[in-house]
Amino acid sequence: MAIALSTPTLPALRRSKALTVDRRAARRLGPGRRIPGSRLVGPIAVVAIWSLASASGALDPRILPGPWAVLETAGHLWASGTLATDIQTSLWRAAQGFTLGLVIGVSLALIAGLSRWGEAFIDGTVQINRSIPTLGLIPLFILWLGIGESFKVAVIAIVVYIPIYLNLQAALTGIDARFVELAEVLGQNRLQFIRHVVIPGALPGFFVGLRLAVTGSWLGLVVLEQINATNGLGYMMFQAQNYGRTDIIAVGLLIYGTFGFLSDNAIRLVERRALSWRRALSS
Rank of each mutant, 00 (worst) to 15 (best):
A2G: 08
A4K: 15
P8L: 02
L10C: 00
R14G: 01
R14P: 00
R14C: 02
S16T: 15
S16D: 12
K17A: 13
K17M: 10
D22A: 14
R23W: 01
A25H: 04
A26L: 08
G30C: 11
P31Q: 13
P31E: 14
G32I: 03
R33M: 05
I35V: 15
P36N: 13
G37V: 12
V41R: 04
A55W: 11
D60M: 09
P67C: 06
T73C: 00
T73S: 04
H76K: 13
A79T: 15
G81W: 02
G81Y: 01
A84W: 08
T85R: 14
L91G: 03
T99S: 14
L102H: 01
A109R: 04
A109F: 10
L110C: 13
G118F: 13
E119T: 02
G124K: 09
T125Y: 04
I128N: 04
N129P: 00
P133H: 09
L140Y: 15
W144S: 08
L145W: 07
G148P: 05
S150A: 15
F151V: 13
K152D: 09
K152T: 05
V153A: 05
A157I: 09
L166A: 10
Q169K: 01
T173R: 15
V180F: 08
R190E: 15
F193N: 11
F193G: 06
A202C: 12
R211M: 03
L212N: 00
T215L: 07
G216C: 14
G220S: 06
L221N: 10
L224I: 09
Q226R: 13
A229H: 05
N231K: 14
G244R: 07
R245K: 14
T246I: 08
I248D: 06
V251G: 06
I255K: 01
I267D: 04
I267H: 04
V270Y: 05
E271S: 06
S282L: 12
S283G: 11
